[in-house]
Design a protein around this nucleic acid. Structure first.
Lengths: 323, 323
DNA sequence: ATTTCCATTGTAAACAGTTTCATATTTACC
DNA sequence: GGTAAATATGAAACTGTTTACAATGGAAAT
């Protein structure tokens, strides 16, 4: 691998001049520039970023900490982050915390070693203080971990509200909310939006708490069996929605004629079940892009006009609700 | 941020000694070691990897080039890669080529700048020559791009064969194979395994070529409508499988009594459709781990006992085939 | 004619480590 | 007691860049 000295030698100039050419900085005579550029081409010279970063203390890379990777939310967000990062010349180092604080801390140390320019956190981090003392530009995604730390979240309150509104508009009276784990802020927000909407219309609903990954099918089956009057169901995920549909099918209840169902996430799945699932869609890729955008501003020391970005949701109407 | 000089000063030793302590290399007196370690703790010193890498020409990071991120195969593989990489102290830089050669080439240049230690490629790269001239340790995943470049692939031939065997054993005579894009080697391999099995049993099958992402529902519907005799279906993905199931449902054909269906990938989806889809499972996380393992050996200049690793597949029996 | 300024280039210090080599001390062995 | 080997440490060179500063020459201004 050729280095800057080799180029300088071949072009008969000093390394400083070569550096000026590479960085387009300072005075360089046009002829000299061409000489240097040719030498660079001849030697297939590519500047060493380590040396550069060592001096400039900038790594042109950001770290992304997620609690999981195999989850459509995170990899779609990651897609958005990567996409925008590439545009502005940033590398993305991916970290899977596995919801493990020790692992997260180890990654944090790595970040320092590598002069990482910024961090995007999607994990349920309890080590915020550690993050804050690091003083590295940082953006949280999907949750607000601290008032001072910029965030990008999906408008979960609006998501819940919209789902409620749709069910009510289509005439549902006996509504149930199959919720995700209620420790999650996102779930709480959806609940609060949903409940507010019902209250505004003089209604209330039952809540059944479920896990996201492996929702207990039995709980769903039991509830549906013992609540024949149910005519509207809001599920905190399409996976729960799909299970609900299959249970309703087993019980012989017609969707959407007798019961209407709304899911959440707009997974591929929601198009493949019968009937196709009406769902709330989060703009995940956009969330990733917005997070990277905020982070970039932060890195550039720009003022953020909007510290806490709220990304709108959409209701995707399919066949599990009435028109 | 404290640097090695600060530590040296505080411990009243030279930087060389500090370096020896950090790297556990060379002679250091026990008392001196403790002195240095305390200084490190006091100053919260973390060595700068850029300076290190500059001298050692090793980055402790690998690049992963995938054609997409939002695809369960890739992110599961990524999960495996990241997991093992973390164990052995490597960072993972994620690159989404979007199937774009120019983008891939740009990433490649980045890799050189950053002295990347190794590359895992999952993309349909046509720029192999470029890769080869780089002389960076490299492992391909899901496809063999070159005889000399180590690879980790799923045993697609066995997958096709196993699917064929299952359908035949359960008495299918009129079999159709809804294939993925036939340009893909993986698809070709599945086909060849599937067809060989049918041939061995004196059978043959029809083939319908479909896209993976948005399989043309109409093609599937048309085929099923015009081939009432069909009693066995092998689908190159669970998504195709789910669509097939929904079409069969529409046509009033009972699964598995009249028609049996096998999918591929063991997506979450396959558990949620009615009836649950029998499918071939690829051990994706394991593939990622194995790829990282091979790459690590390569980086360490170790001989690979098995250049082309073939990861076994499994038949996951559910409700869309007879027992 | 002298001074000032700009363009152009090079020298050398900085960035933060690792490692080679030299030197000093201790221990081991004959 | 003398020599070789092992232990312990530091000075300085080295990694490949960027940049502050100095030096030079020529043009413009006084």
């Amino acid at each position: 691998m050729a280095n800057i000295k080799d180029v300088a030698k071949r072009a008969n100039v000093s390394v400083a001049t070569v550096s000026r050419v590479i960085n387009n900085k300072g005075y360089v005579n046009e002829e000299t520039r061409i000489l240097v550029e040719n030498a660079i081409k001849d030697l297939k010279y590519i500047p060493n970023e380590f040396a550069r970063s060592l001096y400039k203390k900038v790594s042109k890379s950001i770290g992304v900490i997620f609690p999981h990777l195999s989850n459509s939310f995170y990899y779609n967000v990651l897609e958005g982050i990567e996409s925008f990062a590439f545009e502005i010349g940033y590398k993305v180092i991916i970290c899977n915390s596995h919801e493990d604080e020790i692992r997260e801390e180890e990654y944090l140390n790595q970040f320092i070693k590598y002069n990482i320019d910024g961090i995007i956190i999607g994990s349920n981090s309890n080590i915020i203080s550690r993050y804050k003392e690091l003083n590295i530009p940082m953006v949280s995604i999907d949750r607000i971990i601290d008032e001072e730390i910029p965030s990008v979240t999906s408008d979960n309150v609006a998501g819940g509200y919209l789902a409620g509104k749709k069910l009510i508009e289509q005439g549902c009276k006996h509504i149930v909310h199959f919720r995700g784990p209620s420790i999650l802020l996102t779930v709480k927000d959806r609940s609060s939006g949903f409940n507010r909407c019902l209250e505004e219309h003089g209604l209330s609903c039952n809540q059944v708490d479920l896990a996201f990954i492996n929702p207990e099918k039995e709980l769903i089956a039991d509830y549906l069996q013992s609540h024949e009057e149910t005519d509207g169901i809001f599920c905190d995920s399409d996976i729960i929605g799909a299970i609900v549909l299959s249970e309703l099918h087993r019980l012989g209840r017609r969707v959407p004629e007798q019961v209407q169902v709304i899911g959440y996430d707009n997974l591929l799945l929601s198009e493949l079940v019968i009937p196709k699932l009406t769902t709330i869609s989060q703009r995940m890729v956009e969330m990733g892009e917005e997070a990277m955008l905020s982070l970039h501003s932060l890195i550039q020391n720009e003022e953020l006009t909007n510290i806490h970005k709220l990304i709108p949701i959409e209701l995707i109407e399919r066949e599990s609700t009435k028109k």
